[in-house]
């Protein structure tokens, strides 16, 4: 019974994080900021939700942990791949951005 309550709290926290992630996806001005708010918040939300399910059903905990570890390992890789692809396909940074060291670096590399 107590496990059920704890698991439900974890699931609700995860749901709130996933909701906030997609809200960030909608509100932010350019691809990079959208990724900042969404790809990572959704990782934490997914981990929290799946852990909640594992706590409610202790027999499923090992498999749930396996899914959590898999999400933890793969999500940053895909975020990095999308980010670099976005930069290389020429998506501009938001005009309010402060600095762009990567663009300077790519220009230097081209000239050299």
């Amino acid at each position: 019974m107590i496990g059920k309550v704890i698991g439900e709290i974890f699931m609700i926290i995860g749901g709130i994080f996933m909701f906030l992630a997609s809200l960030g996806l909608l509100r932010m001005p350019d691809v990079y900021n959208r990724m900042q708010t969404s790809t990572k918040a959704v990782t934490l939300g997914a981990m929290s939700s799946i852990l909640g399910v594992g706590i409610i059903h202790p027999a499923w905990l090992p498999k749930c942990l396996l899914i959590i570890i898999f999400i933890l390992f793969t999500n940053p890789v895909s975020a990095h791949a999308i980010g670099r692809a976005a930069y290389r396909t020429g998506v501009k940074l938001w005009p309010g951005s402060k600095c762009d060291k990567y663009g300077e670096y790519l220009k230097e590399e081209e000239n050299a």
Binding site: G14, A21, V42, T43, A46
Partner: peptide
């Protein structure tokens, strides 16, 4: 995002 949510 959608694929992660689908997994959950």
């Amino acid at each position: 995002i959608l694929t992660t949510i689908t997994t959950v």
